[in-house]
Simulated scan of single mutants.
Amino acid sequence: MKPVYGKNFKLGILGGGQLGRMLIQEAASLDIQIHVLDPTHDAPCAELANSFTCGEFRDYDTVMKFGTDKDLITIEIEDVNTQALKDLQAQGVKVCPDPAHLEIIKDKGIQKQFYADHNIATSDFRLIESGTELTADDLPCVLKARTGGYDGKGVAVLRSADDLAKAFDGPCVVEDLVDIEKELSVIIARNEQGETKAFPVVELVFDPVANLVDYLFAPANIADDVAASAEKLAMQVADALEFRGIIAIEMFLTTSGEVLVNEAAPRTHNSGHHSIEGNICSQFEQHLRSVLNLPLGSTETLRPAAMVNLVGAEGYTGPVIYDGFDDLLRMEGVYPHIYGKSTTKPFRKMGHVTILANEVAELPAKVAQVKETIRVISK
């Protein structure tokens, strides 16, 4: 049965960052009121939410208090108190995605084991108690903190003995370093009725220093059979989880032509930001449709798109300035999204720019122009 929502329907979001902010912007068009919990008093959602609660979404009592009067709870970050969400479910509060799925995905060790148990193609791995256990015999490899990592934090690529100094303490996943031709992503939405839609495969280009997405191209410049394999693999993950909501599956295309799952995010994702302008239905609208059990929107591409992350420039920390913003706005087919964060620091995500073109071949030059035009600096 479809939920009845309106002015009295309370949709709560755990997390008040830029993903929640863009979700609120879509929710306004559907006349959905949003209530947000986040530990940062000036989080990007604070000025837009119908109500904003400053509190810790990892704390059991805080999440219980926040969620008790909500009709539905969803997330924009997976590192939340899942026991509280389970107990809210038991009290009749709808939670989407399911907290059991969050428990699998937010621990990268459990997540990788899930892929292995369900015959989902992924790189070889092992679990260790601390990255400091590694020796030169274990190299090359990728070291990932099992919990808490995001935006390139908690990840270290170790190629030589000198890199062992970058290894960090705490429970980790050690993955084989695969030869990557391209990094890809597929975002899938599924509602309670089982209706499922996949966004076209996108191609991600990572900053080698920060280990986060620098820019992307949509659709990915890959062969049709590779795109089909990527979508099939992403669907395999969603099916194995029996997932409801929206989930992003990041993948590797290896130099030998294999497609492997890297990791998943059970929420809207950086690899789908271009969809606001580039697709008929954005990932944020699709998130709302999926968790509210509404008919899903078309994921068809309107025009080829690129997305450039606006991150804090190295060497700048303090009140933010978007240097070159006027020049950016003079460019045709360029759509900036600023996240409302007051302070910048190196590699902090402060916004993004969507670029539309008539042909995919036009996008690389436009990406270079955007990156040369605007810098995120401080006073």
Rank of each mutant, 00 (worst) to 15 (best):
I105V: 11
V209Y: 13
V209A: 14
D137I: 05
D224G: 09
S29K: 14
A223L: 12
D98S: 10
F325I: 13
E183M: 06
E362A: 11
F347H: 15
M64I: 14
T68C: 14
V261W: 00
K366E: 10
C141S: 04
K341P: 00
K232D: 11
D327M: 11
A121S: 13
E129Y: 06
D214M: 09
L72R: 02
K86W: 11
T147G: 07
A90G: 09
L328V: 06
M251W: 02
A156L: 03
I188T: 08
N221D: 15
A49W: 02
V376K: 00
P44M: 06
G20K: 01
V95Q: 01
I276V: 14
T82K: 07
A165F: 07
V370H: 00
I104A: 07
E314V: 10
A210W: 05
V186S: 01
T40R: 15
G351T: 03
C172L: 09
M22K: 01
I355P: 00
S160K: 11
E129D: 13
E372C: 15
I374A: 03
I75V: 14
H101M: 07
V93F: 07
M307A: 03
N191L: 02
P39A: 09
I24G: 01
R21K: 15
V360E: 13
H118C: 06
K166S: 13
N50Q: 14
F114Q: 00
T268W: 03
G15D: 03
L212F: 13
V36T: 02
D87Q: 08
E26T: 12
E332V: 12
T196H: 10
A368G: 11
K70L: 15
I105N: 00
I120G: 02
A365F: 12
L241E: 01
G170R: 05
Y339I: 07
L72W: 04
N293Q: 09
V237T: 01
M64F: 10
F114I: 02
L363T: 02
L72Q: 03
C54D: 13
P39S: 10
T254E: 06
A49E: 03
R244I: 10
K144R: 04
A167H: 02
F217Q: 03
L216I: 07
K70T: 12
E258T: 09
V95Y: 01
R289Q: 05
I249V: 15
